[in-house]
Simulated assay, not measured.
Amino acid sequence: MLKATMDYRRLGQAGLRVSALSYGTWVTFAEQGDFDRALQCLDIAGRAGVNLFDTADAYGNGEAERLLGLGFETLGWDRAAYVLATKLFVGTRDCVNMRQTLNRKYLLQGIEDSLQRLRTDFVDLLYCHRPDPHTPLEETVWAMSDIVARGKALYWGTSGWSPAQILEACAIAERHHLRKPTMEQSEYHLLARERIERDGAAIHRDHGIGLTTWSPLASGLLSGKYAGGIPAGSRAAQRGFAWLQPRLCDAADNRRVQRMQAVAQRFGASAAQLAIAWCTCHPAVASVTLGASSPAQLRENLAAIALAPLLDGDTLRELDALFPAGAAASLDTPTNTSTNAPTGAENTGTSTFSPSSFSLK
Score class of each variant (00 low, 15 high):
1 M>W: 15
3 K>D: 12
4 A>C: 09
5 T>P: 07
6 M>G: 10
6 M>Q: 14
11 L>V: 07
14 A>G: 10
21 L>T: 05
25 T>A: 12
31 E>M: 07
33 G>W: 05
50 V>H: 01
50 V>R: 03
51 N>F: 12
52 L>A: 13
54 D>K: 09
58 A>E: 12
62 G>E: 02
62 G>T: 03
66 R>N: 13
66 R>F: 12
68 L>V: 06
72 F>R: 07
77 W>E: 02
78 D>I: 03
85 A>G: 05
89 F>I: 04
93 R>F: 00
95 C>I: 04
96 V>Q: 14
97 N>Q: 13
102 L>A: 07
105 K>C: 08
105 K>M: 10
108 L>I: 09
110 G>H: 03
112 E>Q: 14
124 D>K: 02
133 P>V: 09
138 E>N: 10
144 M>L: 14
171 A>D: 14
181 P>I: 01
184 E>N: 07
186 S>I: 03
187 E>Q: 06
199 D>L: 06
203 I>C: 10
218 A>K: 00
222 L>A: 00
227 A>C: 03
236 A>D: 00
241 F>C: 13
245 Q>P: 00
249 C>M: 11
252 A>P: 06
253 D>A: 09
259 R>H: 13
259 R>C: 11
260 M>I: 05
272 A>C: 05
272 A>V: 01
274 L>E: 04
275 A>V: 00
291 G>D: 12
293 S>H: 15
300 E>I: 11
304 A>D: 10
332 D>V: 06
339 T>Q: 14
342 P>L: 11
345 A>S: 08
346 E>N: 11
348 T>N: 07
351 S>E: 15
361 K>D: 12
